[in-house]
Write a protein that binds this DNA or RNA. Structure first.
Length: 553
RNA sequence: GCGCCUGUAGCUCAGUGGAUAGAGCAUCUGCCUCCGGAGCAGAAGGUCGGGGGUUCGAAUCCCUUCAGGCGCACCA
């Protein structure tokens, strides 16, 4: 029995009580689905609901009386072992072992599909993250969004949404010229200009540019800057793409800011917003009246000198997303960009969208890794590439994905490479590899799922706890998708791994494989089904986080 | 000054109005003759920053206050 079915059974019990007059509640006050949750305390049963507490007042009765009535009605339902009333009026529900144990079969047969759902079905979402300038390597701040953004994309898709992951390349503007000038200076042994890029990586780029274009030093200065800029840009972007690919991060679209300018999309955006009535001219510049909405001051789109601002490109980019058919637009930005939230929402509103539903801006707070070496090649930053070389892809991704984005984070690098309980990624991966090895051993000893499944065998406390945990997975995925919080999946996997290890260590009689002189029984087979169900969920969950599920460690 | 985020165990952090506030680390005590000890069981550790309020019920919602981080461009 799934929580959904249980919730429906509760609704039916409420409706029946209203129908026969024992519950004085208007029909429209009966909730279509009743919220059930896993109680913290095991002795409170498999599931609990506070529905009686919530409805008693409206029905003019006491919570306990209402709960007693519901308990009597629900207790007769098939698959339910017992229903109790506790405390002020909680309903505690225990399923019978066979009904609960069926879940293991459901999971094993569903395989990779278990956990996927329809909570976000029909939603079409553009998910933009990282979007770092192509003028230098990715650093630790980008790394947090790389891990969270990619995982969020996977989770949104698992919940049924259609998602395009997008990287906005800020390849326009004065910074690119400074980038070109910096490379040229290094290539020709002259001084890097004020405000230029100085990291060791600029020397590396200069060497690559010279290898591609040995004629660089002989070119007229303007042309040389352009060549250095363009060739350097290509190399830097290639490196970013390679580093992200090695990190397991995939983008569907790499969107160039320059394209917006070259194609005239920026001018078109200005005129479109002008038609909407939100653009005005002042002091020689063209402005967007973002104060019509949530912003605290109006923003310049075209400067007095005729050059468009970065903000104008942002507006054009927003319209591009809208035009390309994405009602939902999620932006993942760093904390240093939180001042942008209101003006981005104002763009949406000026474009005629609903800033509450068509645009969502998630802000990631700072992260620091203690003990990490600062990058010499890029200056005083921690590079994503170095971090992955040092700690490993799985540990970096997991360590970042297991915390919500909106809290500042201080991680210890030494803990992240420890292969022990200090590091939850190994704890979860170890549980997965253990299920794999147990499965192999069981088959060697003649325990085979194909020989049958008697779910009633899974009646031990550690087994029902484990089954209950497995039941939660689809709801956890849906919740992580709806709240945009990948860390919920990681925390769930840690709890599941804990329940699994506890079951494994619980009692020497509760083994998947028989002792050497022992016959294979229904119990061994049932436990193999359960073991394999756990493996399925651990693998599915780790995949949502972009972390590998090793068969052996 | 204004705005956003964050204050939970010694440390790093979970906990989108429910029952006795949880996990890992660190400290202490147990558990390897057969499925992986990278594991398990237990002990100890808390004015949920402070103060008001809403509610049958608040770490969670509202107000206020203190502390820390970040941001307030015709830069990108």
């Amino acid at each position: 029995m799934t929580p959904t079915q249980l919730s429906e059974a509760l609704s039916a019990a409420l409706a029946a009580a209203v129908a026969d007059g024992s519950l004085a509640l208007p029909a429209d006050a009966v909730p279509a689905s009743v919220h059930v949750e896993r109680p913290r305390q095991r002795e409170h049963g498999d599931w609990a609901t506070n529905v009686a507490l919530q409805l008693a007042k409206k029905a003019g009765t006491t919570p306990r009386a209402l709960a007693e009535d519901l308990a009597a009605r629900l207790g007769a339902a098939p698959g339910i072992k017992s229903v109790g009333v506790a405390g002020p009026g909680f309903l505690n529900i225990t399923l019978d072992a066979a009904t609960a144990g069926e879940l293991a079969r459901t999971i094993v047969e569903a395989g990779e599909a278990y956990g996927r759902g329809e909570a976000l079905a029909g939603q079409v979402i553009n998910l933009e993250y990282i979007s770092a300038n192509p003028t230098g390597p990715l650093h630790i701040g980008h790394t947090r969004w790389a891990a969270l953004g990619d995982s969020l994309g996977r989770i949104l898709r698992a919940a049924g949404a259609e998602v395009a992951a997008e990287y906005y390349i800020n390849d326009a503007g004065a910074q690119m010229d400074r980038f070109g000038e910096s490379i040229l200076a290094r290539a020709t042994g002259t001084e890097v200009p004020e405000g230029g890029y100085r990291g060791e990586y600029v020397n590396e780029l200069a060497a690559k540019v010279l290898a591609d274009r040995p004629d660089l030093p002989e070119l007229p200065r303007d042309e040389a800057i352009a060549v250095a800029r363009e060739v350097g840009y290509a190399h830097q972007l290639a490196e970013i793409r390679e580093v992200l690919a090695n990190f397991g991060v995939h983008f569907d679209v790499w969107f160039s800011e320059r394209e917006l300018h070259d194609s005239g999309a920026v001018e078109k955006a200005v005129s479109r917003l002008r038609e909407q009535g939100h653009v005005f001219d002042k002091e020689g510049a063209v402005w967007l009246r973002t104060t019509d909405f949530t912003d605290d001051k109006d923003r310049v789109m075209i400067r007095a000198n005729g050059e468009p601002t970065y903000f104008a490109a942002d507006a054009a980019y927003y319209l591009s997303k809208k035009d390309r058919g994405f009602p939902g637009k999620i932006y993942l930005l760093g904390a240093d960009h939180h001042g942008y939230v209101n003006r981005l929402k104002a763009i949406a509103a000026c474009a005629g969208d609903d800033p509450e539903s068509n645009i969502e801006v998630l802000i990631g707070q700072l992260v620091n890794v203690g003990g990490a070496k600062l990058s010499k090649r890029a200056g005083n930053i921690i590079e994503l590439r170095d971090l992955v070389d040092w700690i490993g892809k799985d540990a970096v991704r997991y360590s970042l994905a297991r915390y919500p984005a909106d809290s500042p984070l201080e991680l210890q690098g030494e803990d992240m490479i420890k292969q022990s309980n200090d590091n939850p990624v190994f704890y979860v991966q170890y549980a997965h590899s253990r299920t794999v090895q147990i499965g192999i051993k069981a088959v060697e000893r003649g325990v085979r799922r194909a020989d049958g499944f008697d779910p009633a065998q899974l009646s031990h406390a550690s087994e029902t706890a484990l089954i209950g945990r497995l039941t939660e997975f689809p709801r956890i995925v849906a919740q992580a998708a709806e709240l945009r919080e990948p860390h919920r999946v990681a925390r769930y996997l840690e709890a599941l791994a804990g329940d699994f290890h506890a079951w494994y260590n619980d009692d020497e009689k509760l083994r998947v494989t028989p002792y050497q002189d022992e016959e294979v029984t229904d119990a061994h087979r049932a436990r193999l089904w359960l073991n394999d169900a756990v493996r399925t969920v651990l693998a599915n969950g780790l995949d949502l986080l972009g972390v590998s599920a090793p068969e052996r460690m």
